[in-house]
């Protein structure tokens, strides 16, 4: 019957299209993996740095929850006129610090920087970050294997990530 045949053809065509689309997706994924594999620094935690929200970023970087601590000092400007250069200083009196990270949840990618501290290096760091817009800055510190945090908000007048 003509209708049944049409329907069958339609299905086949849809099937073929789906298959093509799937191949395209897989091909694209393989290409991007291949393109990345050759360049990313082996130790660089790519999954964490590609995270676009705080929950995923913290999970990918540390795989554990954090608790606020008053033993962390996070020094950031209250107002940053230029979001392209926001000075950040982070220090702590917590013992046995192995890692310190700075996250900017309102940026396109959440993690800005993550530092690994061998024994003997003072748990204190200063650097300069870009901020797309007004955001909380979340500092995470791993001490004795546990994760601690503190936050401060920076008001950004002119974003630093471009339009």
């Amino acid at each position: 019957m003509p209708t049944a045949q049409n329907a069958r053809q339609g299905t086949t065509r849809r099937g073929a299209l789906k298959l093509l689309a799937a191949l395209g997706v897989v091909g694209g994924a393989l290409r991007s993996v291949a393109a990345r594999a050759g360049v990313d620094t082996p130790n660089w935690p790519a999954n964490a740095f590609h995270s676009k929200n705080q929950t995923d970023a913290v999970k990918a970087l540390y795989g554990k929850d954090f608790t606020p601590s008053d033993k962390i000092s996070l020094d950031v400007p209250e107002i940053a006129e230029n979001g392209a250069v926001v000075p950040v200083a982070l220090a702590t009196t917590l013992p046995n610090v192995t890692s310190m990270s700075i996250l900017v949840p309102e940026n396109p990618f959440t993690i800005a920087a993550s530092y690994t501290f061998p024994a003997g290096t003072a748990p204190s760091i200063a650097c300069r970050l870009k901020m797309a817009k007004t955001s909380e800055v979340l500092a995470l510190i791993e001490s004795d294997g546990k994760l601690f945090s503190t936050t401060k908000t920076v008001k950004v007048t002119l974003g630093g990530c471009g339009g």
Partner: peptide, 30 residues
Amino acid sequence: EELVFEHAGKKVLTAFWGPAVSKDPYIKFS
């Protein structure tokens, strides 16, 4: 992506950076 400081054959700091670190990056530690 990665910046390493070594003293006497031992790493004293490893920095992992993303695109949110400012142009011409500055870092201070001890």
